[in-house]
């Protein structure tokens, strides 16, 4: 079951300060996605579902 595999637990952030994240890229991504979102709704399909 999912509980045994850690799937239930959410992401444990290894880097709570977030310094290693590419902040600028995330900010740009946030702004552009906000501009693209016409109908923000929980059930609305996401554009990105790709296998690793």
């Amino acid at each position: 079951m999912a509980a045994d595999t850690g799937l239930l637990q959410g992401e444990l952030n290894e880097n709570p300060q977030g310094q290693e994240l590419e902040v600028e890229k995330l900010l740009i991504g946030f702004l552009r996605a906000l501009l693209d979102e016409q109908d923000p709704k929980i059930g609305a399909p996401l554009p990105e579902v790709a296998a690793k």
Partner: peptide, 12 residues
């Protein structure tokens, strides 16, 4: 929110 935009905010 389960949206693209919110995923960037949560990442930040």
């Amino acid at each position: 929110s389960y949206s693209e935009a919110s995923s960037f905010l949560t990442g930040l």
